[in-house]
């Protein structure tokens, strides 16, 4: 007879479970990177072309037309817009991370969250690949990178990763149950951009509502990116608050995912 009534783990742990997961993420990530620009002539240039195009549009509107009183506005823009693009691309793409792999989800039992992880890492790679553009603009306007970047940039990447991964996992999971989310998410991230100091600086916000930035993890993160890129400086209380949000969101995403993951194969 059967050993017991407990639902046992289906697959016995592989010999190197962690190594296997790392390899799975690396191979999936390699696939995404290879596939994204396969058959295009410009390849990598496209990962910079998008954020640069947005930079041009916003520069035109806010500097040349609306005359925002910020010096070096192009530099100011890329310092906020490039990390923002990582966030926005992952959240907007989160639905696809699972749906694009529907045949696998239906057939093979493996941790589905790795698909979302891979998607977020993929967008992170493209952000990192665009940092040289920020550096070039920085040098052009007389600034220069500092040695402190070596620890500041990784810290901010980890913090933003938590926020981005947690939300992506939430969106990807919830979207399987309510497909309308895909449309809603696009609208929400668009609005989110405008309540986050990406195109303007926090100093320009009326003093009476400046406290709201503590409620917006991306406002804290983008503000910090700018501090790092422009001054090689981080504000401890801002970083602490952002890290708090990051952990909270990552844990929330993981909890919701764990609760609902068992139905994924029925829904994709």
């Amino acid at each position: 007879m059967c050993a017991g009534d407990e639902l046992k783990a289906r697959n016995p742990e592989p010999t190197h479970p962690l190594q296997q997961r790392v390899d799975l993420v690396l191979v999936l990530l390699g696939k995404e990177l290879k596939v994204r620009y396969k058959g295009t002539v410009l390849g990598y240039a496209w990962s910079v072309a998008y954020p640069l195009a947005f930079t041009l549009v916003f520069y035109f509107v806010f500097r040349l037309i609306a005359r925002v009183p910020i010096e070096n506005y192009a530099l100011f823009l890329v310092m906020g817009l490039f990390p923002w693009q990582w966030f926005q691309n992952s959240i907007n793409g989160a639905n696809g991370f699972l749906l694009a792999n529907a045949p696998l989800i239906k057939k093979v039992s493996f941790p589905r969250s790795l698909l979302v992880l891979t998607g977020v890492l993929n967008d992170l790679v493209h952000f990192v690949a665009s940092i040289p553009v920020i550096v070039a603009l920085l040098l052009w306007s007389g600034g220069r990178p500092t040695a402190a970047w070596l620890w500041q940039v990784p810290i901010l990447i980890v913090i933003q990763f938590g926020v981005t991964y947690g939300l992506s996992l939430l969106v990807a999971t919830a979207n399987l149950f309510l497909r309308d989310l895909e449309r809603l998410v696009g609208i929400v991230t668009m609005l989110w951009l405008y309540v986050t100091p990406v195109l303007y600086s926090w100093d320009m916000v009326p003093a009476s509502i400046r406290w709201t930035r503590w409620l917006n993890p991306m406002a804290l993160v983008i503000g910090s990116w700018r501090e790092v890129f422009a001054e090689g400086h981080l504000t401890p209380e801002v970083v602490a608050a952002a890290a708090g949000w990051s952990i909270l969101i990552a844990v929330a995403g993981q909890l919701v995912y764990r609760r609902l993951e068992w139905r994924f194969a029925e829904l994709v």
Partner: peptide, 30 residues
Amino acid sequence: AGVLHPTSGTIEAHGRISPLLELGAGFHPE
């Protein structure tokens, strides 16, 4: 295979499971 979960009852499988993917379902065409 463990991709679906029973509404009631239990299933145990002991051993490494390999599902044969139909027509290379996991393949990426590019």
